[in-house]
Design a protein around this nucleic acid. Structure first.
Lengths: 251, 251
DNA sequence: CAAATAGTGTCTTTTAGACAATATCCC
DNA sequence: GGGATATTGTCTAAAAGACACTATTTG
């Protein structure tokens, strides 16, 4: 409760960098106000909702809690933000710990910070979500490491903390972005068949789509373009391969 | 740099709430990991982008910085989050300080936290934006209080910190939400004329709209419905008053 | 030729957008 | 009647959605 010991800034209430008093009266910009709470600051974490499409289903990586609170429940992987690390870097670090992959689609979702969301202390968590191709993703399985698991995003077990709310919001955002961005291509290789693309969309939206309308729309929007390759997988007609066209008009 | 003085939590590395070690190995959920950085935690702030429509223009409330860094530049109002206060409550508190109004539309926008965005220390700021009717909004003008000012959102002066980026993103989000939500009604009284509504849309989008198509769309979507009232303001035909219909389908 | 998936076209409905004349009020 | 703003309808183009059959390959 006592005043803190300064730390690595040069906050003073007089020159050379006078700070306006805050908190009761009128404050200036957040990045500038004083009465800096050097102790009793909330902790800042990132959580990363790692999503992939496997076997036609949208799945999320969860980690089992092996201690209280919420021991035994599943939760979204996360960790604290280091002092000198950007939020996105913290999310990438966490992502890399869990998946071994660093260079994937990663987007900030929302920041959850209600007091009491963690019963032990105040934790403000900046949630990111990541999209990774299933073939790039392998979860740690060493003994002693936490147990990770894929779960179908549309039938989740009870989750720890406010992580059910986080998942609801993640899926809402992902479905929304699917309609007016090209986010879906993050879950496919460079070349893909129309069926594979449609499977990704169907997995995310959790409903079937009409094959003809789906192809028509993506081709007319110039979002995808055919390559000169085809692919044979099974005793049936081979499939044309397509690639994403990054210069297409977005909706 | 010295350790802080404990504060109001009960974090230990052993029972009764053992924490998993984090940071190098595999972490559990963010809301649970240890190596709690009791000192050197980033500060957490909220900034509030306060928007209104005045005289047909979308305007934002800015505050002038009267000390370094960025002394003399304008900035978005903000302040630190208290330990026991939700992020939204912190934003409401700041909003109330600046405007005297508490019960308005407020939505979380994005969290900005790059190290170095504030040259003095690590500040992670959760940005909210608020929509307030101009007639509800009066800025403090007492001597000694910071100087606040309305600025046209589409012709801003140079801003402090990363606040120009924050403004760009705010306007992008607001324009986006205008199309698929009823957010625009936050800037009008309970009853309003079509011209008033169109003015709000035009101010936010910063372009003119066709009167006939605008009316047609909002009436067909059942977003607005006529009341039995009219309003006379000038030597010309009186205007029908409409109200927002909260049960309309949200395209 | 059977099985399996790939590929294709039409019609209807809805939505978006361009466009100009009349209505109602006060003075 | 003049000035000012409110109100209204048609036509076209684009997009969304329902719907069923043919094509190509292997074994």
């Amino acid at each position: 409760m006592a005043a803190s010991t300064g730390a690595s800034t040069e906050i003073t209430l007089s020159s050379p960098s006078p700070q306006p008093t805050d908190d009761t009266g009128h404050a200036q910009s957040s990045s500038a106000s004083a009465e800096v709470p050097w102790q009793n600051r909330p902790a800042v974490a990132v959580d990363v909702v790692i999503l992939t499409v496997r076997e036609g289903r949208l799945e999320v990586v969860l980690v089992k809690r092996d201690h209280p609170p919420f021991e035994g429940l599943w939760s979204i992987p996360g960790g604290f933000v280091r002092y000198d690390e950007s939020l996105e870097d913290a999310a990438k670090r966490k992502l890399s710990e869990v998946t071994g992959v660093g260079d994937v689609y990663l987007e900030q979702l929302y920041t959850f910070g209600d007091p009491g969301r963690d019963p032990r202390m105040r934790v403000i968590t900046v949630v990111y979500y990541a999209l990774i191709r299933a073939d790039q993703l392998r979860l740690p399985e060493e003994p002693g490491s936490p147990s990770y698991q894929f779960c179908w995003a549309y039938d989740l077990p009870p989750l720890a903390f406010d992580h059910e709310e986080i998942m609801r919001y993640s899926l809402l955002r992902l479905r929304g972005k699917l309609e007016y961005t090209t986010i879906g291509f993050q879950l496919l290789a460079h070349e893909f068949t129309m069926s594979e693309l449609q499977d990704v969309y169907q997995a995310i939206l959790n409903r079937t789509l009409d094959k003809r309308n789906f192809r028509k729309k993506l081709l007319m929007m110039r979002t995808v373009e055919p390559t000169s390759h085809t692919r044979m997988v099974g005793p049936h007609r081979p499939a044309q391969l397509f690639r994403f066209n990054p210069h297409a008009a977005q909706s």
